[in-house]
């Protein structure tokens, strides 16, 4: 993990070099413009919120960054280098991890198995050639990974199906934080959680970002976005219309951008 200072908020600090940049990205389905010429950048340690009404293009944008969709035009840069993802696996290999709304965990597998699924460690030597798992190494590594994100799971050998909703969320985020080296994309991570657990996931997101790994948070939960994010991007009919800082606006202000009302009244922060 690189050592970076977290953006301190406000416009005063020197801008850090972006890890992920979106340049002029458009996505068209026939005559429908899902995204129009979107530019954005995510810097190390930032928590960036992505909000907008249903159909504003949030999922399309996230899926493009995650490699699940190809843009019609425009480009994605990781560490300043242009990338052309053909699949989510490509994006993952480039250090971009996604936490899906449904978490994508296997309930019958243990915590460590879920953390390493698809990237299993095998022992050295002939047994390794037939895929003999190095269970101890994976369990140990899981403990370390989860500790770093301050996630408390009684045992990494627990079946994920036995965990509470918040714990499962933590495992999914912990997995992304363990493998992600550039950015974590989170799609509605707290949609299924209670208030208290939402708050804890919010803290978890801050913890992850404080280690230098930025988070792009897509959420309808405006209080959480307002509370957790360093910047809030607003999509409106496929256009990125605002880049707000929580200390410069309030909830009503954000809602105004989401509904387009703020645009009509002429305000712009970009």
């Amino acid at each position: 993990m690189t050592t970076v200072q977290r953006p301190t908020g406000g416009h005063g600090g020197a801008p850090a070099r972006p890890v992920v940049e979106v340049r002029g990205v458009s996505k068209r389905y026939g005559s429908i413009h899902a995204l129009r010429d979107v530019d954005m950048a995510i810097c190390p340690g930032e928590v960036v919120g992505l909000v907008g009404d249903n159909g504003a293009g949030k999922s399309t944008l996230v899926n493009i960054i995650a490699g699940a969709l190809a843009p019609t035009s425009g480009e994605i840069l990781v560490d300043g280098e242009r990338v052309g993802f053909k699949s989510p696996t490509d994006a993952r290999d480039a250090g971009i991890e996604t936490v899906y709304q449904d978490l994508a965990l296997a309930p019958d597998l243990s915590v460590w198995q879920n953390l390493f699924l698809g990237r299993e460690l095998t022992v050295r030597g002939p047994l390794g050639w037939i895929g003999w798992l190095d269970r101890r190494a994976m369990a140990q590594q899981s403990v370390t990974d989860l500790e770093r994100t301050r996630i408390r799971i009684s045992s990494v050998s627990s079946r994920v199906g036995r965990l509470s909703g918040g714990q499962r969320q933590a495992v999914a985020v912990g997995r992304a934080a363990a493998w992600g080296s550039k950015v974590i994309l989170m799609d509605e991570p707290t949609a299924a959680l209670g208030v208290e657990q939402q708050q804890k996931v919010g803290e978890l997101i801050k913890t992850v970002a404080s280690h230098g790994l930025p988070v792009l948070l897509i959420s309808h939960n405006l209080p959480q976005v307002y509370d957790v994010c360093d910047r809030i991007l607003v999509l409106f009919h496929g256009r990125l219309i605002a880049d707000l800082r929580p200390e410069e606006t309030d909830m009503d202000g954000i809602v105004g951008w989401i509904t387009g009302a703020a645009m009509l009244s002429g305000g712009s922060t970009r």
């Binding site: 301050r150 996630i151 918040g166 933590a170």
Partner: peptide, 19 residues
């Protein structure tokens, strides 16, 4: 080989809901 207890991750602060 780690001690068995090390496989139980307990972190005192900032812990997530134990359930």
């Amino acid at each position: 080989q780690p001690p068995a207890a090390a496989l139980d991750a307990h972190v005192a602060e900032g812990e997530l809901e134990a359930g």
